[in-house]
């Protein structure tokens, strides 16, 4: 079947099997391999992307269901060579080691921060990332990075 999806601001069209999952449409049809797959059960969150601005697990959505929608992946987070505040914060606070969960963590965090509309406290970040697993960091520095980015994104002082 034919699908047309706006991915990172560009309209992309392709003929796919109905059973094509959004994540494989992104990775294999479009070659956007930044979005990773860590499980088969909608558990790990490595495949998190934005559909119409909201975080979703792209392994649990059909490409057909994204037809006509706007999808943002990790590749679309930096603009004009400028890293997204979350990308900078993950680097600054050492919020990644192997990096495999990182794209999903960043996409989930961005959606979380925008939805909250205010800088996030540690506990809000921890609960808000319940759907993303990381095996390397123990989450400690991920949480620090997301708290810091939420302050930057909502204009709070960095020391708050």
């Amino acid at each position: 079947m034919h699908v047309s999806v706006t991915v990172n601001g560009t309209r992309r069209e392709a003929d796919v099997e109905p059973r094509t999952l959004l994540v494989y449409f992104l990775r294999e049809t479009l070659g956007l391999t930044g979005t990773n797959v860590g499980c088969d059960t909608s558990t790990c969150g490595a495949c998190t992307v934005h559909v119409d601005g909201q975080s979703v697990k792209s392994c649990t959505m059909l490409a057909a269901q994204a037809d006509g929608r706007e999808v943002t992946t990790i590749e679309g987070m930096a603009s004009d060579g400028e890293l997204h505040p979350l990308q900078r914060a993950f680097h600054e606070h050492h919020g990644l080691q192997c990096g495999y969960c990182t794209p999903g963590m960043i996409m989930a965090s961005d959606s979380l921060i925008r939805e909250a509309g205010h800088p996030l406290a540690e506990e809000e970040v921890r609960i808000g990332l319940e759907g993303n697993l990381c095996r390397c960091t123990g989450y400690q520095n991920i949480v620090k990075a997301v708290v810091a980015a939420s302050q930057e994104m909502h204009g709070a002082p960095a020391s708050a």
């Binding site: 391999t33 590749e75 890293l83 680097h91 050492h94 990644l96 990096g99």
Partner: peptide, 21 residues
């Protein structure tokens, strides 16, 4: 020192084995 490894990992440009064809 901030990690040299990070730039490709935080932008989705890193290549893991399953990213290769």
């Amino acid at each position: 020192v901030r990690r040299k490894e990070d730039p490709e990992l935080i932008t989705g440009q890193a290549r893991y084995s399953d990213d290769l064809a």
